[in-house]
Design a protein around this nucleic acid. Structure first.
Lengths: 192, 192
DNA sequence: GCGAAGTTGTCGCATATGGAACAAAACCGC
DNA sequence: GCGGTTTTGTTCCATATGCGACAACTTCGC
């Protein structure tokens, strides 16, 4: 059963404005320098309203990360299809990198700060969960340890992505997807 | 006495969103094709809320025009100064054209439709009012009919501006200001 | 022409947000 | 260290907006 509660339009608008403002500020100054005042002004929202949704700026940062990562997750698992083949998977990978590219500012900001580790860990978690689900859907454990496959693939993916972002995305999403796919294929993880 | 009432942040936000959405739609379809539904969706605002501020889409269009024109007015009369000279006036003219340039989409949309006349008339009114005020401040009626000066200058200004916008702003605001100034000067309207 | 679907104004009520004030805490310059 | 300023949470009350419903009207395919 899927929970089917539409959230009030005002809430969505407000959260979006706050997120946007926070992200902008995040690319301009260090987290410690950002005040709730800054955020409320930039977002054109009453200061009190921010406390209605977030306990403090750290909570805001966490939820911001959570938000983007789950968006990414949604953006990439659009085309879930059980009889897919290699091409499909490359497409999916490409759409993930497209998402990164479209939100370069956010990811870049997340990675170039002391708080990187929080972000990286959370991202790893998400990817691991995602992979587990996929591997369950297709039944290709073979002789290999599933846990190990997941950890291997996830770390490789997150690490490579981080490198890609840190270096200002020197390749196109398409290219990244293809290259990564080849590497995964080599390790006989997803290959049929 | 200046009325000093701050309007609620929510109202400003809402109006801005509606204006923006309406303008976008205006550049995409004919006014008749635009529904209140369209606007509310695009602006991410409840349909009823629109009726809170505008009676219908024609009212919205009018207020939208009014808004932009008064903004333009404000943007250009920043530097009102009684002992100004030629340079000041060129600067002021330039800032007007800057405003047009910055809001190209709006003005372009306003001019390329059947409803142009409404817009042109209103703009003419504004410019005439503005000119009257200026001419009153400086006392240079000389032997000429003030009414006539105003009408002449205003029509010339509005017409030239319309041409400039219609042709996708082929010259820089600075250039336009200088050229227009020279023309006015030739007709001995403002010259000292 | 007719019925279906969409649009328009307009309600009532619920609720998210604004604004202002406040005390406590944190952050300054000196 | 100390006084002034800024920031932080929190409060109460007012109000703008959301949501859903409604009847009247228009649009449009057939």
């Amino acid at each position: 059963m899927v929970t089917e509660t539409k959230t009030d339009r005002r809430i969505l608008r407000t959260k979006e404005a706050i997120n946007k403002a926070f992200l902008e500020l995040f690319t301009e100054k260090e987290l410690e320098q950002i005040t709730i005042n800054d955020i409320s002004e930039r977002a054109n929202v009453n200061r009190g309203t921010i406390y209605l949704h977030y306990t403090d700026k750290y909570d805001l940062l966490d939820k911001c990360i959570e938000d983007h990562l789950s968006n990414m997750f949604v953006a990439c698992s659009v085309s879930i299809d059980f009889n897919r083949d290699k091409i499909d998977l490359i497409d999916e990978l490409t759409s993930v990198f497209d998402y990164f590219e479209a939100n370069f500012l956010f990811f870049s900001a997340m990675i170039s700060t002391q708080r990187t580790s929080v972000f990286r860990e959370r991202m790893l978690q998400i990817v691991v969960a995602n992979l587990n689900e996929k591997l369950d859907q297709r039944d290709i454990h073979r002789s290999m340890n599933k846990e190990l496959i997941v950890q291997f693939t996830a770390s490789a993916f997150v690490g490579t992505t981080e490198w890609w972002i840190r270096n200002h995305m020197p390749h196109s999403p398409q290219y990244m997807a293809e290259q990564l796919w080849k590497l995964f294929e080599k390790h006989d993880v997803y290959a049929r």
